Amino acid sequence: MKAQVLNRFGDPDVFELTDVDSPAAGPGEVLVRVAVAAVNPLDAKIRSGAMSSVFPTPTPAILGSEIAGVVEATGADVTEPAVGERVVGFAASGGYAELVVTTPDRLAVVPSDLSLTRAATIPTAAETAQRALALIGVQPGETVVVNAAAGSVGSAAVQLLVSAGARVIGTASADNHDYVRALGATPVRYGDHLLDDLASVAPHGVHAALDAGGRGFVDQILGLVEPGRIVTIVDFAAGAKGVNVAAGNPFAIDAHTIAPVLDLAAAGDFATEIAGVVPLADIAEAHRLSERGHLRGKLLVRVADIPGANA
């Protein structure tokens, strides 16, 4: 099968598109033919070598932990999902490849009226947002600031918070303010303007905050929100300040929380944005786009043309 292989750490051009042996589904495993894989910020950090102390990655390696595709085969003792079903979720082997192996608990069946491409925007965003928000226990009527509200995790968090009855303020670049507003949040600017903007739109204060973008946000918001009601998914050093760090383990999470969100998306009640779709051969360009930041939505890699991918 074709795969983008990482033979050494470094800049985005270290990937090599090559033929490798196809994996097989063992007992309790599922083999998925990949239509679409997501490019997450963590992928670029692993590729660069920056995360080697946290997530040791022996090379050669195939990256990509989030995929959507069709079940190609199942191992012994697997009854669901069935061969031929469209699925989305998390890969145990690398998703930048035509075939991946994973386990049933890490997959969710995609509703018939949701495309695989759209479904691929949901798993990490929905799971991460739900896990992070659980740490700060937002109540209806509270005001919450979401940093990087136009990104995939941020926009998921905004929608989950709004549906739970919270008032949401979202940081975003000016070009994304209309999008953040459409999600149900009040947009504010990043950076030096943040505290002034928050004083204007939330004169009675802010109860909690979710940091999905870093860039000094935690240090800014600590003056307004008690540390125990701040959660970050990117600023790992913030734990020393009493802030909740929702690091998680991308190689251990399951898909049990994403099925309801897939249903909401199929019904038009959960919106996602696609920042771009690039061919598997252009994975280096996808990583460069990811590292520039300020993406609106999810960056995807088209691995193969599979019926139903764009339906």
Rank of each mutant, 00 (worst) to 15 (best):
residue 298 K to C: 10
residue 167 R to K: 15
residue 135 L to D: 07
residue 66 E to Q: 12
residue 253 I to R: 14
residue 30 V to Q: 03
residue 166 A to V: 08
residue 30 V to W: 02
residue 8 R to D: 11
residue 68 A to G: 01
residue 133 L to A: 05
residue 107 L to M: 05
residue 218 V to N: 01
residue 301 V to L: 13
residue 196 D to E: 15
residue 128 T to S: 09
residue 16 E to A: 15
residue 128 T to R: 05
residue 159 Q to W: 06
residue 255 A to T: 05
residue 76 A to G: 06
residue 302 R to G: 10
residue 2 K to D: 10
residue 117 T to N: 04
residue 89 G to I: 09
residue 255 A to R: 01
residue 136 I to L: 03
residue 235 D to T: 12
residue 47 R to W: 01
residue 185 A to G: 09
residue 65 S to V: 13
residue 100 V to H: 04
residue 228 G to S: 10
residue 67 I to V: 15
residue 285 E to I: 14
residue 303 V to A: 01
residue 92 A to D: 14
residue 311 A to L: 15
residue 198 L to G: 07
residue 172 A to I: 12
residue 91 A to L: 02
residue 62 I to R: 06
residue 134 A to N: 11
residue 61 A to C: 08
residue 44 A to C: 13
residue 294 H to V: 12
residue 24 A to W: 09
residue 193 H to G: 14
residue 130 Q to I: 15
residue 292 R to L: 13
residue 238 A to G: 05
residue 87 V to K: 01
residue 287 H to T: 08
residue 299 L to W: 04
residue 45 K to F: 13
residue 129 A to E: 07
residue 69 G to F: 03
residue 121 T to Q: 00
residue 101 V to K: 03
residue 261 V to M: 03
residue 143 T to N: 07
residue 250 P to L: 12
residue 88 V to E: 05
residue 264 L to S: 09
residue 217 F to D: 05
residue 36 V to S: 03
residue 160 L to C: 09
residue 214 G to S: 07
residue 198 L to V: 10
residue 124 T to N: 13
residue 131 R to M: 14
residue 165 G to F: 01
residue 234 V to Y: 01
residue 253 I to L: 15
residue 60 P to T: 03
residue 52 S to H: 15
residue 247 A to Y: 12
residue 53 S to Q: 15
residue 136 I to C: 05
residue 119 A to C: 02
residue 123 P to M: 04
residue 241 K to V: 12
residue 188 V to F: 08
residue 20 V to E: 00
residue 247 A to M: 15
residue 202 A to P: 02
residue 261 V to T: 12
residue 311 A to T: 14
residue 279 P to I: 06
residue 185 A to I: 11
residue 71 V to L: 09
residue 143 T to Q: 10
residue 115 S to W: 00
residue 20 V to I: 14
residue 108 A to R: 04
residue 221 I to A: 00
residue 18 T to L: 02
residue 138 V to N: 08
residue 122 I to Q: 00
residue 211 D to Q: 04
residue 37 A to H: 09
residue 11 D to K: 12
residue 44 A to E: 10
residue 290 S to V: 06
residue 154 G to S: 08
residue 241 K to W: 14
residue 22 S to D: 14
residue 177 H to Q: 13
residue 73 A to E: 11
residue 136 I to Q: 07
residue 130 Q to L: 14
residue 84 G to A: 00
residue 229 R to P: 04
residue 249 N to A: 14
residue 212 A to H: 06
residue 169 I to R: 07
residue 39 V to G: 04
residue 268 G to D: 09
residue 77 D to P: 03
